[in-house]
Simulated scan of single mutants.
Amino acid sequence: MSRLVTFALDDARYGVDVQRVREVLRTATGPRVPLAPDDVVGLLNLRGRVVPVVDPRVPLGLPSRAVPPEATLVVVHVHDEDVALVVDSLGDVVDADEETFAPAPETLDASVRALVRGAHVLPEGLLHVLDLDATVPAA
């Protein structure tokens, strides 16, 4: 069984392993970083630590949106550092059985399919499981 923290980006639901999630915040992001990659939309001072704020829409090929003044951020641990992901809304923590797990849908673009470990087919709809190591590039 997998425990996944879920969130929405546009009309799709995504999940990440609950053990990789440090915390969830609703806060303003810091200034945009000059010369940073397109998916790095700012910095966050998290109790004295500088944490990059990443928009997963960019690698997932979704239309970009302005980061709202009070953004919902899911702080995850990836590549031995904490990174804050900007999400549209936070969902529940879901316990998903292996029987509901399937490979990433063929309807996804190949570049996006490389970022998704697979999907759980749940009564409330499809839940894409993000591969954080692939979605968030190493610094």
Rank of each mutant, 00 (worst) to 15 (best):
L60P: 13
R47A: 11
A134F: 07
D133R: 14
R20E: 00
D133I: 03
V94H: 12
L132R: 04
E70R: 15
D80H: 02
V76M: 11
S64T: 11
L90K: 05
P63I: 07
T27Q: 02
V24Y: 07
V40L: 08
E81K: 00
R32P: 02
F101N: 08
L108Q: 13
T107Q: 05
A110Q: 14
T27N: 02
R32S: 15
R26F: 05
V86Q: 02
L43M: 15
L90I: 15
G91V: 10
A119T: 06
H120V: 06
A96H: 02
A110M: 09
H79I: 07
A71W: 08
R20L: 10
L46I: 04
L43V: 15
A28S: 15
L44A: 01
H77Q: 05
E23F: 00
D133A: 14
G125C: 12
P105N: 14
V21L: 10
P63C: 04
L122E: 01
L127W: 00
V53W: 08
P31F: 09
L122F: 11
A71P: 05
R57N: 03
S111L: 09
H79A: 04
L44V: 13
P63A: 13
G42P: 04
L44K: 13
N45E: 00
L85P: 03
L62Y: 11
V51N: 02
V24L: 03
V94R: 15
D39T: 01
V67Q: 07
H128G: 01
V75P: 06
D55N: 14
R117Y: 09
V78H: 06
L130N: 02
N45L: 09
L25V: 04
V75Q: 03
V94F: 02
D82C: 08
S111G: 08
